[in-house]
Amino acid sequence: MKIKMTLLAAAVAMSSGYAVASDNNTAEVGQTGWGNDARVDQRSGGNHDASVTQILGGNDAAVVQAGDGQNATHFQYGWGNESVSEQDGRNNTVNVTQWGAHNDSTVVQNGRSNMATVDQYGRSNVSLVKQDGYRHSATVLQTNRSNDTNIKQSGYRQIANVSQTGSNNDVNIDQENGRRFGGLNVANVSQTGFGGNGDIEQAGFHNITDVDQGGSFNDVDVRQTGSLNYADVDQTGTGDYALVSQYGVLNESYVEQSGYYNDADISQSGWYNTSNVNQSGWFDDASVAQSGVNNMSSITQSGGFLNTASHVQTGSNNVATTTQTGSFNNASIVQ
């Protein structure tokens, strides 16, 4: 058993830190400043490694590790940051860096060989990562202020990557295997604007979602319960909304919104279907429903406002294209 504790500082009054350990564990706590609090509990299991570094004041860190071979690193520089990690199982790893004020990170991992990395630079950012299962990976980057990320992963080898470099953005990612088989789902979200919202739910096998939100007050919902589907949503306007639902196999959906208060609704329950929606106008509405095989749909709405386009494809090998550049237009295609 090895425990190492260091107190660096000229102003460590009212700082506190303690470590509790069992067999073959290592715990290191370094505090510089005042009013910092660090707690490490490694009483269950063995071969754990924990490191906590706190600089300046009022930071709070808690590490709880059970099972075998857990690794936790917490680095806090600033004021009033809070970081908690709880790990059980085997060979899980968590790395948390907080640089700023009043950031909050919680990581809970149960299972084997899971990895969580959280980097918070700024103020009042919040991150929650919960992983149950085998070989999941979660990465969170938050800069600026008041961003919120919630990641929940279970099953096998799910991957979630979140980058929030704007302000007041919100992300929720929920990935699981599904009823029969699944895993290997991937969710990537980048938010560079203000007030964006992204919700992703994946419960199938090797579905991939890429979301890029700039602009302000944009909203995206992605639901994937099939297999090998791909959804790509790019929002750079204001007040745009995209809903992508994929229940089939090998479907692809692409949504690009650069206008104002546009709405896109895509549903794919067939096989090998492709949908493209591009909206750059005002208050336009696009709807695509594909339940057949190998259909292609393309909707472009630009330069106007209050256009409506609808594509319904239930057959096979059909192609539907709608282009609207004026205002008050309405188009409907059923195949």
Results as ranks from 00 to 15, higher is better:
Gln175Arg: 02
Asn177Met: 08
Gly178Trp: 02
Arg180Ile: 10
Phe181Ser: 13
Gly183Trp: 01
Asn185Gly: 10
Ala187Gln: 00
Asn188Met: 06
Ser190Ala: 12
Gly193Arg: 05
Gly193Leu: 04
Asn197Lys: 09
Asn197Arg: 10
Asp199His: 06
Glu201Val: 12
Gly204Ala: 02
Gly204Phe: 01
Gly204Asp: 00
Gly204Lys: 01
Ile208Ser: 09
Ile208Trp: 04
Thr209Leu: 03
Thr209Gly: 06
Gln213His: 06
Gly215Leu: 05
Phe217Lys: 13
Phe217Cys: 04
Asp221Met: 04
Asp221Leu: 03
Arg223Met: 08
Gly226Trp: 01
Ser227Glu: 07
Leu228Ser: 08
Leu228Val: 04
Leu228Asp: 06
Asp232Phe: 05
Asp234Ala: 11
Asp234Cys: 05
Asp234Lys: 14
Thr236His: 15
Gly237Gln: 13
Thr238Lys: 14
Tyr241Met: 13
Ser245Val: 14
Gly248Lys: 04
Asn251Ala: 04
Ser253Trp: 00
Ser253Thr: 12
Val255Cys: 07
Gly259Tyr: 09
Ile266Phe: 00
Ser269Tyr: 07
Ser269Trp: 08
Ser269Lys: 08
Ser275Leu: 05
Asn278Asp: 15
Asn278Leu: 14
Ser280His: 10
Ser280Asp: 14
Gly281Cys: 09
Trp282Met: 12
Trp282Asn: 11
Phe283Pro: 00
Asp284Pro: 05
Ala286Thr: 06
Ala286Gln: 06
Val288Cys: 03
Ser291Asn: 14
Asn295Ala: 06
Met296Ile: 08
Ser297Arg: 06
Thr300Ala: 11
Thr300His: 03
Gly304Glu: 06
Leu306Asp: 11
Asn307Cys: 03
Asn307Val: 06
Thr308Cys: 03
Thr308His: 09
Ala309Pro: 05
Ser310Phe: 03
His311Gly: 01
Thr314Asn: 13
Thr314Asp: 08
Thr314Ser: 15
Thr314His: 07
Ser316Trp: 09
Ser316Gln: 13
Val319Phe: 10
Ala320Phe: 02
